[in-house]
Amino acid sequence: MTLVKFNPNRDNKKNGLMTGFNDVFDSIFNDTFFSDRLMSRVPAANISESQDHYHVELAAPGLKKEDFKISLERDVLSISAEQSAQNDLQERSFNKREFSYNSFVRSFTLPDSADDNGIDAKYENGVLCINIPKREEAKIQSRQIEIK
């Protein structure tokens, strides 16, 4: 299958009728305001694995640890945060206001090898770190094999 990149300028040159109209929409929807808002709805996550644990790191700067709620239902780990927008700057009139982080929910399905009884979490420097221990039988075993 071939991936073909869409180029709006190429189509505008062909039909020539609505070139200005399409340029207006391109400038609106390609604005960094819209693209940044769509990308920032949920915080980015890093998921890694060590010998004894799975690690989930969520980049959520500007929140407090009291803003987070972590729950486990069956094998789904859900991380949510809710922060009310504070209106303590009543005397200011904003021309553009982009940072009001309302709420988000991220859910992760735990593997069968995860031990859900020992999950711990900490929040420091804007990163929520969750450590999920592995079951004893799932821990990475390594040993030397003798060559005969």
Rank of each mutant, 00 (worst) to 15 (best):
S93L: 11
I130D: 02
H53N: 07
A60M: 00
T109V: 09
D36H: 02
A60Q: 05
V56R: 02
R97T: 12
D116Q: 10
F6C: 09
L58K: 00
I119R: 00
S103N: 10
D88L: 10
D112K: 15
L77K: 04
Y101W: 05
S50K: 07
E66A: 14
T2C: 09
N125W: 12
Q144P: 00
T2E: 15
K69W: 00
N131P: 01
K5Y: 15
F94E: 14
V42W: 00
S71P: 02
K5M: 13
T19V: 15
I132K: 00
S78F: 01
F94P: 00
G16R: 10
P111A: 09
M39E: 08
D23A: 07
N12G: 06
F29Q: 01
I119P: 03
D120P: 00
L89E: 14
D23W: 04
F94Y: 09
K5Q: 12
L89V: 00
V127C: 05
K148G: 11
E66C: 02
A59F: 13
D88I: 06
K139F: 05
F68K: 01
N125T: 10
F25R: 07
K65G: 04
S100C: 10
N125C: 05
M39I: 05
R135F: 02
D11T: 13
F29V: 10
E57Q: 13
A85S: 12
F6R: 05
E73H: 10
I70G: 00
A114N: 04
F104C: 05
L3Y: 14
F34C: 01
D120Y: 06
K14D: 12
I79D: 02
A85W: 05
F108T: 02
E98V: 09
S40V: 02
T19L: 04
I132P: 06
R97N: 13
A45M: 15
G126S: 09
G126C: 07
K122I: 07
D120W: 04
V24N: 06
V76S: 13
Q51P: 05
Y123D: 00
D11G: 03
K122V: 15
N22C: 12
V42T: 11
S80T: 12
R92Q: 15
R74S: 14
M18R: 05
Y54I: 00
